[in-house]
């Protein structure tokens, strides 16, 4: 039996305690939110429903400066690449599929029943168009 292992590198998230986490993060310094100009494409709704709750550009809950996925990617890239996916123009459908289908770090994988391959391609098109619009702003 073949058991696939995830080939992508692990994103290390900050491990905090279950209790009192909100309190601990409530006093983080505010971060200027990134300006995102959203492209009017079919992938926008899919992204906003399936990805944005973790990977959106807005602030996180309870005083966190960023949403968890955006914060994880910001830490991973150390500012060289935007943490917010809507500011990335380098993610085509195949690249997204690698992460979506395999998961990475604390992000679980997504099933075809919840996110079809065509949805992922639509998200990729939306991200690229949105990143370009946002950069030219």
């Amino acid at each position: 039996m073949s058991r696939r292992t995830t080939t992508t590198a692990a994103v290390v998230l900050v491990l905090a305690g279950m209790a009192g986490v909100a309190a601990a993060q409530n006093r983080q310094a505010p971060v200027t939110p990134a300006v995102v100009v959203k492209a009017d494409l079919p992938g926008r709704t899919i992204f906003e429903r399936q990805c944005a709750p973790c990977h959106g550009a807005g602030p996180g809950d309870d005083g966190s400066p960023m949403l968890p996925g955006t914060a994880a990617l910001s830490r991973r890239y150390g500012g060289e690449i935007p943490g917010a996916l809507e500011l990335r123009d380098d993610l085509d459908g195949d690249a997204l599929r690698l992460f979506v289908r395999n998961g990475i770090g604390a992000m679980p994988s997504f099933r075809k029943a919840e996110l079809a391959d065509a949805d992922i391609d639509a998200i990729a098109a939306y991200l690229k168009a949105t990143a370009e619009l946002s950069q030219s702003r």
Binding site: V14, A16, V21, Q25, D61, D62, L67, P68
Partner: peptide
């Protein structure tokens, strides 16, 4: 509903 709580998820869960 929110996914903000994912900030406490470390390693691979």
């Amino acid at each position: 509903p929110s996914l903000g709580i994912w900030r406490i998820v470390g390693d691979n869960g």
